[in-house]
């Protein structure tokens, strides 16, 4: 899963699941509990209706209800249908309130809907239930990033990388934050790490291009400071380069790039 520059890599979980025995086709019922802080207010009946609505003539018998609803939610999320996705994830939580990926995915859908406090609550719950759920830290780091809480974001991306050293998205996201803080060397280090893992990962190149632009502007400014009045002479090619860079600064500045990379 990928939302512009800050990237999630899907909803995989590494922990064994608490499986409750429920038949979707008949009795999605007994063990369901009211979910705390449920943003959409799903009920057993509405979840059952959702199942019937999406499956039509199909009735699937499964003992793993929560993953089934997460699958439903992911399909909706892939179409940017966030409200039905949140409903499906809430049904997963209703089926199993201890299932961390359900909170994580609902948090991400809420994040996409800019419901940041609810998203944060879900991410917190996800890592509380499963402290090894790397992707939940990555998602929460993204939320902190767009809120400008770079310190917390760095912490979460670092935990995500520690838990899953192959997570290209977490490296990319941490590079974004390092760069936003002006730590370009650290940012480039993360970019290099990301590209070592997956050189075909497109967003990493977008981030690196933003960093290069920021570095170019820094060098341009250094040139201006050192050249002084000479920089204003129109017949020197460095001046043309400078002017070109400055004219593109509005679209090429790192702040603009960050806004683009973190937009929802």
């Amino acid at each position: 899963m990928r939302r512009n520059g800050l990237i999630g890599t899907g909803f995989a979980s590494s922990l064994p699941l608490m499986i409750i025995l429920i038949l979707l086709s008949g009795a999605f019922v007994a063990a369901a509990q009211e979910s705390p802080d449920d943003p959409v207010g799903v009920t057993v009946e509405s979840c059952q209706a959702l199942t019937e609505q999406v499956s039509g003539a199909l009735s699937i018998r499964t003992d793993a209800v929560a993953p089934f609803f997460i699958g439903l939610g992911d399909a909706a999320f892939a179409d940017d249908d966030f409200t039905p996705a949140i409903e499906a994830y809430s049904c997963a939580i209703l089926a199993d309130a201890t299932y961390a990926p359900a909170f994580m995915n609902r948090g991400y859908a809420l994040f996409a809907q800019r419901a940041d406090p609810l998203a944060l609550a879900d991410f917190n719950r996800a890592v509380e239930l499963d402290p090894a759920l790397a992707q939940a830290y990555n998602f929460r780091g993204m939320l902190y990033t767009v809120q400008g809480n770079f310190g917390l974001a760095l912490g979460d991306f670092t935990v995500a990388i520690t838990l899953n050293p192959d997570d290209v998205s977490a490296y990319n996201n941490r590079a974004v934050v390092h760069a936003a803080e002006g730590n370009y060397d650290l940012a480039m280090f993360d970019i290099d790490s990301a590209l070592l893992i997956d050189p075909e990962y497109p967003a990493v190149y977008a981030t690196r291009s933003a960093i290069y632009t920021a570095l170019a502007l820094i060098d341009a400014e250094a040139y201006r400071l050192r050249a002084g009045e000479a920089a204003r002479y129109p017949n020197g090619s460095p001046v043309e380069v400078m002017e070109g860079l400055e004219s593109s600064a509005e679209t090429g500045s790192f702040a603009t790039w960050l806004a683009f990379l973190t937009r929802r």
Partner: peptide, 21 residues
Amino acid sequence: LNYVGQPDDIRTSYYMGEGLG
């Protein structure tokens, strides 16, 4: 790509749900 490494019944339920969605 999702639920790699999970038990088969979990992955099956996930992909059936995703497919139906």
